[in-house]
Design a protein around this nucleic acid. Sequence first.
DNA 1: ACCTGAACACCGTTCAAGT
DNA 2: ACCTGAACACCGTTCAAGT
Lengths: 199, 199
Amino acid sequence: MAAAMQVVDTQGAGAFSMRALGAFLECDPTAMYRHFTGKNALLDALVDSVVRDGAANLPETDDPRADIRANFRQLRRSLLAHPTLAPLVLRRPPGVGAYWERSDHAVAQLHRAGMDPVDAANVYQTLLFYTLGHTLSEARQLARAVEREGAGADAGPVAAVRPPQDRHPDLSDIAPHLRDDNEVQFLAGLDLILRDLPR
Amino acid sequence: MAAAMQVVDTQGAGAFSMRALGAFLECDPTAMYRHFTGKNALLDALVDSVVRDGAANLPETDDPRADIRANFRQLRRSLLAHPTLAPLVLRRPPGVGAYWERSDHAVAQLHRAGMDPVDAANVYQTLLFYTLGHTLSEARQLARAVEREGAGADAGPVAAVRPPQDRHPDLSDIAPHLRDDNEVQFLAGLDLILRDLPR
DNA sequence: ACCTGAACACCGTTCAAGT
DNA sequence: ACCTGAACACCGTTCAAGT
């Protein structure tokens, strides 16, 4: 439901309630129970629509590595478009819903690139969980801005993951190499995992 | 607070409330506000204690790769020990709390193994986010068992991530290579990321 | 067929009052 | 100093009643 997504994006998923949605739609809070079995089903539908978003038209070029990068980059983008909702992807078991539509594409590309099935399975699951971990961590930072200041808070660029310089000398050594740009940082991790992809 | 952790582990984090904790401690639900500023602070303290758990005595052998594996494997184990609480690690910004104590160790080991700072930064953040993504996905499955059947439900081994065989032929090709054992699957991903670690 | 609204059993948090 | 308990402003969900 588009209205529910609008409430989630403007108020934050934490403030989303049947009563808030009822007020937004100017109807009784219990009217939604005719269309969804409850709040959980509604949230599941929202999460599914986010994961499915953009999965239909993933690129199929003659560069498998670029296609795979585009696939997970787009998953990241879809999740970050709704930062307060993003962590709720973990509510759904991974074999359910729109999840697999996306990964089907990635695995096909790994095959096309000449990777054998055992490596493909390993690379695929590593890419997926890396993308989830990275994106959900980033989403929480964006979500805090939304929940503090309401819709579309201009929180500026989100700070990259940074150690406290004072406490951890080893981490501080590498701190300059933790990129400020989360997108660049994210892609660097993808490339690390895809390092051995045959060309 | 140990009592709060006990309530979370037996009832599930979803059923945890100030009132439930008050009932468990046989005191008024509002008494806790003398010790914690609110429910959020209490949950943050619980999450911190989980992330910190076991971080103090990580191994320091002459095999850096094994030490790094042990580090993230132990983080996974600590999170899975409290499956319903695990997803709440995303509540905290990553530069806060016990998070870094663990990673300090990993980065020191990457240095010791002769890795240059740029690669170390990249490998380190990839390992961390992969571990979070993998472990939080797995934790949710365990959590569903706890929340259905109460404490220590013997849900059997958690099913590995599996595509629906009927819908996705490419994924089905590799399905036999998605290991049943989540621990083995997890370690395979770590090794993929650590592939280029100098020996 | 669909919506309403009272009702039930819950929440987190505050605050005046007790000891 | 610490706990209590009433109170406030919320929840999700059910169900008899309306149209």
